[in-house]
């Protein structure tokens, strides 16, 4: 019977393990995302660890991407490296954690990163879950039109026969439907479609996020971003875990200091210039954490 006993003990042990695992998993599931109990590291702790974990994108050039040598690059990364240098004395002490758009909040809430700098747009919904520092970039809508028939004011689009091209589901579509119901919209599903529609002359202009348009116009001669910025303005800022005021105020002071040496302009020149070209820094860059 010795064998039988062992078997039974084994069964009990194994089943307890399993119950434990599944039960924990399920109760966790209910707890959902409000894991506010999770702590974050103080600046002193970061210094002791000799590293700061910064969440960045790996596939969103030119903001955060991995180059063909496997190194992190981009506008966000450029600024993040400077943060690491000023906080811990060396930019190599930035440990980049590659995040994707949907889990940026979760990374902060579960203390898997110290700062998120992954082109994180400030929204009221996100503000409830994380703390945003001062912005380093701003975004708004833009309008691109052919050089032969430039659209330099939105009123021009109200004339009869002038169609405005938008992509379905974008904030630009919502904006025009709400604010300018008398402008005739031509809607497409894909980004590639809106651009070919403009080239074919099916519409007078495209309205979209200005960054997309600026980048496109740069590689398509004959088209210009004739209205570079209008409508609601979004900002992009570093974010820290809710309640991490120590790191938050350090970042804000840091951005102010960097503003004095025009560091964000330097970051723009080093990373975004290639894609957006010169002349759009004022539309995109926020220096010193303050929007004029």
């Amino acid at each position: 019977m010795g064998k039988g006993k062992k078997l039974i003990t084994g069964i009990i042990a194994a089943s307890m393990l399993l119950v434990g695992l599944t039960a924990c998993g399920n109760s966790d599931n209910n707890a959902g995302s409000n894991s506010s109990s999770s702590k974050f590291d103080s600046i002193e702790q970061l210094k002791k660890n000799g590293k700061i974990r910064i969440g960045v994108f790996a596939d969103k050039p030119p903001f955060g991407y991995v180059d063909s040598e496997g190194k992190n690059q981009g506008f966000d990364v450029y600024i993040a490296k400077r943060f690491a240098k000023d906080l811990l004395g060396d930019e190599s002490k930035a440990e980049f954690v590659l995040v994707d758009a949907a889990s940026r909040v979760a990374y902060l809430e579960s203390n898997k990163v110290d700062i998120i700098m992954a082109n994180f747009t400030v929204t009221d919904e996100r503000k409830e879950k994380v703390d945003f520092a001062s912005p380093y970039m701003k975004l708004s809508f833009g309008i691109v039109s052919p050089d032969s028939a430039p659209i330099t004011s939105i009123d021009q689009l109200k004339e009869k026969g002038q169609k405005l091209i938008v992509a379905k589901g974008t904030t630009a579509e919502t904006y025009f439907t709400k604010e300018y119901p008398d402008i005739e919209l031509l809607k497409f599903d894909q980004y590639t479609e809106i651009f070919s529609a403009l080239k074919d002359g099916r519409g007078a202009a495209i309205a979209n996020d200005n960054t997309e348009l600026i980048a496109w116009a740069k590689s398509n001669p004959g088209f210009t971003v004739s209205i570079p910025a209008f409508g609601g303005q979004d900002t992009i800022a570093p974010a820290v875990a809710k309640g991490n005021t120590e790191l938050l105020s350090w970042i804000n002071t840091e951005l102010e200091t960097l503003g004095k040496e025009k560091f964000i302009h330097e970051a723009y020149n080093a990373t975004l210039n290639e894609v957006y070209g010169e002349g759009y820094t004022d539309e995109l860059v926020v220096e010193g954490g303050k929007i004029e």
Binding site: N29, S38, S110, K112
Partner: peptide, 16 residues
Amino acid sequence: WLYVVHFSFSPMLHID
């Protein structure tokens, strides 16, 4: 499961 274990389970038990 991946999300639950990674983002809720491990911080709750304070193991990284």
